[in-house]
């Protein structure tokens, strides 16, 4: 008798993922950056807002590993602290996008009547000019939300909601496509036949099978959302000056590129490394979760 090791879908995916060397490196790097931003400020006890003009704009040294900014504040501490906001915005915005996208896609794919109108809506959102509209809405609503929820909470909510609501269309299309093919499959027809309710067919039978591409899109989406947030902060329209997100740090470093290049390089490198890691992980997940590719 042949005894075979039990293999699950996720076990297979994990095995496949580990073979993608760059994805594994990316996961390690991202894990390190995430750990550093979450735990770092507790270990690295230099305050992020300690002003000291005597040491303004100094390059990296033993006392200040990343150097200092124009007010003599420690750049490493600021980068660590700012990384929390940048990554939190990225993850939260993608959660919004995935929720909206999955909802729209499932409804359109499962209920034929909703398909036409929902897909028209999706097409219209695809045609919206993302960045200009984002800038416009932030300009108009920033102040009132700030009064309502405080300087950080207001802009956080605004950016997360906006980036999420402008990026769900790809997921909606993916999910709809998966639903259209899956709902004709035997196991779904069988579920209908034994009287499973629509809601359970959607959540228990179809959605788990459509999850692979959504996870890949979500991963890549985090990278995109981090870039969008940094772009907004870089244009001076994101978080307020005392919240040192990576984009905000670059915005301020812009004026000192000639005298203090380290000021721009460190936050820029952090954004780039984070996004590159996230994208490589997405690449690895795509290979791991796509059954056509696994050997």
């Amino acid at each position: 008798m042949i005894v075979r090791e039990h293999r699950s879908l996720w076990g297979d995916a994990w095995r496949q993922f580990r073979r993608h060397r760059l994805a594994v490196t990316g996961s390690g790097l991202l894990g390190f950056i995430a750990f550093a931003t979450i735990v770092g400020p507790f270990i690295y006890a230099v305050p992020a807002d300690d002003i000291n003009f005597k040491i303004a704009l100094q390059g990296p040294s033993l006392a200040h590993l990343f150097g200092t900014d124009q007010l003599g504040r420690d750049l490493l501490a600021r980068c660590l602290y700012g990384g929390r906001i940048s990554t939190a915005v990225g993850v939260a915005a993608v959660l919004v996008a995935m929720t909206v996208g999955t909802a729209v896609g499932s409804l359109a794919g499962f209920f034929g009547r909703a398909d036409g109108p929902l897909m028209r809506l999706t097409d219209m959102f695809i045609s919206l000019p993302g960045l200009p509209l984002l800038l416009l809405v932030i300009m108009l609503f920033r102040d009132s939300l700030r009064q309502l929820l405080g300087p950080v909470g207001g802009i956080f909510l605004l950016i997360v909601l906006l980036v999420g609501l402008l990026n769900w269309m790809g997921v909606a299309r993916l999910v709809r496509g998966a639903f259209l093919t899956l709902k004709e499959r035997e196991f779904v027809i069988a579920a209908h036949a034994v009287g499973v309710r629509d809601r359970n067919i959607i959540f228990r039978h179809i959605l788990p099978n459509a999850l692979g591409p959504v996870i890949v899109a979500a991963t890549i989406g985090v990278g995109g959302a981090i870039i969008t947030e940094s772009s907004l902060s870089f244009l001076g329209l994101g978080f307020p000056p005392d919240e040192p997100t990576w984009g905000r740090l670059l915005f301020e470093a812009q004026g000192f590129v000639d005298t203090a290049p380290h000021y721009a390089i460190f936050p820029g490198l952090l954004i780039s490394l984070t996004v590159i890691s996230v994208n490589y992980i997405g690449d690895g997940l795509r290979d791991a979760l796509d059954p056509r590719r696994s050997a």
Partner: peptide, 22 residues
């Protein structure tokens, strides 16, 4: 190519300024 589409344009721009202009 992977770096090109991952690194935000404002950082590429600042790096170019740093190297070629400064």
């Amino acid at each position: 190519a992977f770096i090109g589409f991952s690194v935000p344009s404002f950082f590429t721009g600042l790096i170019l300024i740093l190297i070629f202009a400064v």
